[in-house]
């Protein structure tokens, strides 16, 4: 762990150094470079047709930590998140400029297959979306089965392990054959998390994972996110600032497609460098 922290950054930082310069004026100088990066986003712009959704964003997302992306509706935070595993490409007529380096490699390089990227970078969505025709067990294991895993003992073991990781095992262990959609909203969302972690991705992207849930279910999800971060790099989009404050290590503030500020969550919430960040945090707009 420690040695990786020393070895990893130099491989990436030389590339991203010039751009770091650009954003350092906007106050992201304190992004801990001593941590290994999961992602290095370099001068990324994303277009939907003519519309520019993301404009010239540069940031590095630390490994095995929780990074929150906040900002008002329509600021491009979901797009930025989805660009990290190329999910935004499902919308026709998208175009990107710039780079997204994952473990040092550009995921938009022409030889890269997005299917492979998405197997390594899992995603949890705003609304829980278990497959309605599948049981709880089938939902969790569908990703492994897609990968051709047939070993029953292994599947069985991974089923329990994934459900435990999603803090759902105790609640469903006797009902594994029941349909996934027979669960409550919060349980369904945890089922989706179990489904995402079952394929052992390196990163979990979460797009407002608790926004459709009641406070108790939300608290459970937040606790879960915290636990997951010991094994996974987690990037979470939220419009709930308290949530970002509670459960993230780093926070990126996006406004109108631009990265306004990226720093440790403590700094963003107590001593932001940018006026706009402060205005948003204190609720003056958005």
């Amino acid at each position: 762990m420690e040695s990786a922290a020393i070895i990893d950054p130099p491989m990436i930082t030389p590339v991203s150094l010039p751009q770091q310069q650009v954003t350092s004026d906007s106050g992201s100088a304190d992004v801990a470079p001593e941590r290994p990066h999961a992602f290095a986003v370099e001068r990324l712009s994303i277009f939907y047709g003519e519309k520019k959704a993301i404009e010239d964003v540069t940031l590095t997302i630390p490994s095995k930590m929780i990074t929150a992306i906040i900002g008002p509706s329509g600021c491009g935070k979901s797009t930025l998140l989805r660009s990290l595993n190329r999910m935004h490409e499902l919308v026709p007529n998208t175009r990107i400029e710039g780079k997204v380096l994952f473990a040092g490699k550009d995921i938009y390089a022409p030889e890269v297959d997005p299917v492979v990227i998405r197997r390594r970078i899992g995603m949890v969505f705003q609304k829980s979306n278990p497959f309605p025709t599948m049981s709880i067990a089938e939902n969790v294991l569908v990703g492994l089965k897609l990968n051709g895993v047939r070993d029953r003992a292994f599947l069985r073991e991974r089923l329990e392990q994934s459900l435990r990781m999603a803090a759902l095992w105790d609640e469903v262990k006797d009902d594994l054959h029941k349909p996934g959609i027979s669960l409550s909203g919060g349980q369904q969302q945890r089922l989706c998390i179990a489904r995402a972690v079952a394929v052992e991705p390196e990163v979990l992207l979460m797009d407002e994972p608790a926004s459709a849930l009641d406070p108790i279910a939300t608290a459970k999800i937040e606790e879960l996110i915290h636990e997951l971060s010991s094994n996974y790099t987690v990037v979470i989009v939220t419009h709930n600032m308290q949530q970002a404050g509670r459960c993230s290590d780093y926070t990126a503030f996006l406004y109108l497609g631009r990265l306004i500020e990226f720093a440790s969550t403590t700094k963003i919430f107590t001593n932001p460098s940018e006026r706009q960040t402060e205005d948003y945090i204190t609720g003056r707009f958005g």
Partner: peptide
Amino acid sequence: LQREAAYALG
């Protein structure tokens, strides 16, 4: 959302 769920699993 159903399609995305599957895409996200690779």
